[in-house]
Nucleic acid binder design. Structure first.
Length: 559
DNA sequence: TTAGGGTTAG
């Protein structure tokens, strides 16, 4: 089963130089990049991009050649349409026809290279700026920092900031917003906050603005540090920075995801009182939050309210509602929402399709899920790692493993390499079929490929070993994780407890129950039911009764 | 600068 997983070696491409310094950048650019970047457009609005390219080419044939400013204007519009490879290719044509690049021209180019992940080339352009006798401006530096952040090189972005400051270049609030955003998105909110209040930043003449506060507040909310986010919210008001719709949306989202509904409502009322109208993002947040709580009626009601108030739902709103229906096992209604979205003139994206595929799989409608997957292909929509993982899980759980291998091949071909969740799905399939040697082999592969197993991976493995009669192996893995202080969750403990009960080792199971509480993990109804069943199966009826009373006394029997 | 998707225990 799944022998194909190991067929491909994982490529270790070095896409970028690992570190950049101002003095080490290359002076010139490779000009013939057409072989790297296709100029063909995938725009949903091909006329515009074609018009832009045509105008650019017309300019190139005029004599005398128009000023570089004219070319910059068109390049700028192409960048707005996100056709970065096209802009790169056109800029090199312009240079070969004799246009002397200006600083703006090169800034645009740096932005394009950053967007296509070619930071090496972006820094080459910086070298060229110096070579041509220009000085980079704040926009050049900010674009490079943004590129580094977007390409997962936040550490390099920070070093770059230190280096440019040391060399006397000026940074502004946008530079700091960019860096903080990069840090927050990389899960380093703390590091971002360190940049905030220091006199360092104010000495540079930079006052934290609404962007900076919003970035940090959002980062704190996403880390679940909602109290700190609210404190910063008060602080910004004290400092005379007025919160806007983005601030409120981040906070409302933060409160909703912590199920603090009352606080979310209070904020919603507060923003309305301050004449800040909820936007499509606010409504989507609420629809999503209600949907995730299984409160689909409320989600529906919010959807109706936004339509009544003339706020147009977008793909995200519809998709959040679809997800809500799927989570309440109503995939047919989810399909309806999908169709309504199409009818309203919106194009479902890869996330909408993945939710539908997952919903169908979870309702055991795997054939229909496959049809939707084919429809995606037909519409030239590229499935991503989540789409594949949902479908693979559905196929595995319905025993259709022959298709799974094809999908894994396809993932490799489309460079959507399986991640830890995909592997968890495969590992679970092997464990559930009690192919434990293969599961062990797959686990080794995961580690060998440098993929970090997560708590799901370990739980699947422990559960598989317990159910497949390899209790000692399960205990060995479990003990190892406990000793390491690995943060196991209620699922992991319950699997191990279940394994112990199955072998009649009730004392050990009870000991583990107390151990988990000691480790700050509360048992839930499933854990307790598992132990109770173990006691009853061993005819320990008195103990079972005593256990039940004790748990009831402690209030653990509430859902 | 804000909103949407996938994996585990009964």
């Amino acid at each position: 089963m799944f022998s194909t997983v190991s067929r491909y070696a994982f490529p270790k491409l070095r896409l970028f130089l690992p570190y950049y310094t101002l003095s080490s950048v290359l002076p010139s650019l490779p000009y013939s990049l057409n072989r790297y970047f296709s100029v063909h457009s995938h725009s949903s609005n091909p006329n515009n991009i074609h018009d832009a390219v045509a105008s650019f080419n017309r300019l190139l044939h005029l004599r005398p050649l128009p000023s570089v400013v004219q070319f910059n204007k068109i390049l700028g519009s192409i960048v707005k349409m996100k056709h970065y490879p096209t802009a790169i290719s056109l800029s090199s044509r312009a240079e070969s026809k004799g246009i002397t690049p200006s600083l703006v021209f090169m800034n645009i180019l740096i932005n394009c290279y950053s967007h296509v992940g070619r930071m090496y080339f972006a820094f080459s352009v910086l070298g060229k700026i110096f070579k041509m006798g220009h000085q980079p401006d704040t926009i050049t530096l900010n674009t490079l920092m943004k590129g580094l952040c977007h390409n997962k090189m936040v550490g390099e972005a920070l070093s770059f900031r230190d280096e440019v400051i040391a060399k006397g270049f000026l940074l502004d609030a946008v530079s700091y917003g960019t860096l903080m955003n990069g840090l927050c998105k990389a899960g380093k909110t703390r590091a971002a906050i360190i940049l905030l209040p220091k006199p360092k930043i104010e000495r540079l003449g930079i006052k934290p603005d609404i962007f900076i506060y919003n970035i940090i507040i959002d980062g704190l909310c996403k880390d679940g540090l909602i109290t700190e986010a609210r404190d910063l919210f008060s602080e910004m008001i004290k400092r005379g920075v007025r919160p806007d719709i983005v601030t409120y949306n981040s906070l409302i989202h933060g409160f909703c995801s912590m199920s603090q509904w009352k606080d979310a409502y209070e904020l919603l009322n507060e923003m309305i009182r301050k004449n800040i109208k909820p936007d499509v993002c606010t409504y989507s947040i609420l629809i999503d939050a209600f949907g995730k709580e299984g409160r689909i009626t409320e989600a529906q009601a919010i959807f109706a309210v936004m339509v009544k108030w003339n706020e147009k739902p977008n793909v995200i709103t519809f998709t959040a509602l679809m997800d809500g229906y799927c989570l309440t096992n109503n995939v047919n209604e989810s399909k309806e929402v999908f169709n309504r979205m199409v009818k309203s003139g919106l194009s479902p994206n890869v996330i909408s399709y993945s939710i539908l595929i997952d919903g169908l799989c979870k309702s055991k409608m795997v054939d229909e899920a496959m049809d939707v997957f084919k429809e995606m292909r037909h519409k030239k929509m590229v499935p991503d790692i989540v789409t594949y993982t949902c479908l693979i899980d559905g196929l595995c759980k319905s025993g259709r493993t022959s298709y799974v291998q094809d999908l894994i091949y396809e993932m490799h071909d489309s460079i959507q390499l399986p991640n830890v969740i995909t592997y968890n799905v495969l590992l679970d399939a092997l464990c559930k079929r009690q192919h434990l040697d293969e599961a062990t082999k797959l686990f080794k592969q995961i580690v060998d490929r440098g993929i970090q197993p997560n708590v799901y991976t370990y739980t699947i493995l422990i559960d598989g070993m317990c159910k497949g009669g390899r209790l000692n192996k399960a205990k060995e893995i479990f003990q190892h994780l406990l000793l390491k202080g690995y943060p196991l969750n209620v699922h992991s403990y319950t699997s191990m407890i279940s394994g112990l009960c199955k072998e009649g080792l009730l004392d050990e199971a009870m000991a583990l129950l107390y151990k988990m509480e000691e480790n700050g993990c509360l048992p839930n109804l499933i854990t307790l039911e598992t132990i109770l069943r173990g006691l009853i199966e061993k005819n320990e009826n008195d103990k079972a009764k005593k256990f039940l009373l004790e748990m009831a006394d402690r209030g653990l029997l509430k859902k």
